[in-house]
Design a protein around this nucleic acid. Sequence first.
DNA 1: CTGTTAGCGCTTTCAG
DNA 2: CTGAAAGCGCTAACAG
Lengths: 355, 355
Amino acid sequence: MASKITLEEVARLAGVSTSTVSRHLNGTHFVADEKAAAIEQSIQRLNYRPNLVARGLARGRTLTVGVLTQEIVSSFFNEAMRGVEDGLIGHEYDAIFASTHWERDDEAKRLASMEGRRVDGLILIHPGIDDATLDRHAQTVPMVVVGRQVNSRFVHSLAFDHGLGAQLAMEHLLELGHRRIAYIGGPTGRADADQRFTTYRHALQSAGIAFDPRLVAPGNYVEAGGLSAMTLLLDRGLPFSAVFCANDDSAYGAMLALHRRQLRVPDDVSVVGFDDVAHSAYCVPPLTSVKQPLRELGREAANAVVALIDGRKPPRGPMARLELVVRESTRALPMQSAKATSAATRQKATSRRST
Amino acid sequence: MASKITLEEVARLAGVSTSTVSRHLNGTHFVADEKAAAIEQSIQRLNYRPNLVARGLARGRTLTVGVLTQEIVSSFFNEAMRGVEDGLIGHEYDAIFASTHWERDDEAKRLASMEGRRVDGLILIHPGIDDATLDRHAQTVPMVVVGRQVNSRFVHSLAFDHGLGAQLAMEHLLELGHRRIAYIGGPTGRADADQRFTTYRHALQSAGIAFDPRLVAPGNYVEAGGLSAMTLLLDRGLPFSAVFCANDDSAYGAMLALHRRQLRVPDDVSVVGFDDVAHSAYCVPPLTSVKQPLRELGREAANAVVALIDGRKPPRGPMARLELVVRESTRALPMQSAKATSAATRQKATSRRST
DNA sequence: CTGTTAGCGCTTTCAG
DNA sequence: CTGAAAGCGCTAACAG
């Protein structure tokens, strides 16, 4: 284990003081060309790498921003994380990630750990921690929260209007002539999920369609949940020609359930998702979905923390908007079946796409 | 910005010396119950959090292991990362992640950064850096490499036998009666991809089937590549009843291409992937794939670095094996079409699943 | 058991 | 422009 070499050794070899080396390294002051060269040389020869830990202690800042996400195995969070990475390029900060697996305790622990590491700023993606706690922490370290509106003047929150997104999805379905539209929900109690559901009901109402609770099934944002939700819906035997899923992963599960019952998308039922995760452009059929520009969101978050750290006010630019990406999982309801045939009763029927 | 409080303040409030507080915190020595209580109390009152940076500098170890991955937006890498997280639970180490986006330069930079942060150990997932460089770094910091066999006695490598996996996939297809088996490759020059391809050829040979280069198309491990590869294959107009894809993402793309040409999986062509990424159980149809137990691999990697750090020899247990997970994207070739009908010429034909 | 005293490696006044 | 010296916050001998 080759011993780590230090600034002091470099200084000695170059015949200067440690402060000079430090200054040269950080460009804080001009250093005589001659000495600079000598320093450069000994750095090479010794293969010196500054100890960031010591530097962090001395400077009082670590040049790191901590990113807390719920789950690493998730295209959704990944996109945002990637955005953060992108956004940090060009700034002098590095990101370190940690995930909390939806456990509130874990979140608290990770948060503490990040603070212990003295990150200069924090980005929390869809945190579950309550506003008050967040507010408290934000008083100690610059914090931006992504995916949720936090009621605190210390934390900078970046969130989309999920209602608007759901609106887009519903309008699309309605315009295609669908009247019996089922809904597969997200985890209850989460603002974004609630918002989507509320909009689903409102949209129905605005279109003069009675809300039917039997057309909604609970989901949990993951494939398995979508699968069982759709199975439940189908088992109830009520007719519906389209389904709006609270997120893409649920939609995948729903599509598989449909497939298992020999029902075809979009011929038998149209499905629209939410998130427009990378995979959605490649599933069969490609999924119509509400795109959340997560990458961009991540980038904005990165810029915001850096601004916060620098004591600037984060630019409150016009945020990227949610938009509907129409693909092949939705189609207009054919006139003859506008009377809403029952998907359930058509199981195993032969209504195939006319070739 | 509430000022960060220090050990010293805690000590003062508790009326003891800093070392006593430190000892109590780390459990290095017994501390009188009375004082311990006082310390505990002032910690509470001041809401003290140890400064891990200072601690790291003083101890000479940071209790962190760095994890370098190629891409954060990838179910493949995610699984392994998650495994590392899991494997670290119970140990006193935290993981910090960084991704390098397949850029060799980025890799070097990140590696340097991790070393600068004085991580106690390093896990590199599918690094592109050459063996010699890896070997050099490994002499300074405990290192385990996942996904590749590194020729160095300093680095501990953990890799699967991709040849075996490919073997499994091919045997499955062959047993199902397929003779004309196409292949969609991975990025050239990468050991794992090369290994899979080689095995594809060998398996064909062993089965007495002539290798036909026109049945292989280049891919790049991502959906788009799989899509164009399959399109190319179809355009060549040669008959094939099955396709082996170098990884799952390619398979998704291939399945979409098939869908676009009105070809059905597995009725018209069977497809098998490699990796068995989480989503594969939920695509339509669920994909038959060679499972790489990445999660477990990540866990093992975590245990290995910890062992290495502690100066122990990492346990070389029997590693989890690759296995074939048979789902619904493959099926036996019906006898009558055993003479290998041309998928291409059947495009838009009506051969649908008999209902 | 506990206080005192040195550092860990680097930055940053403070004087030249 | 540059050296000396004083920390950053915590741990780890070293003496009680």
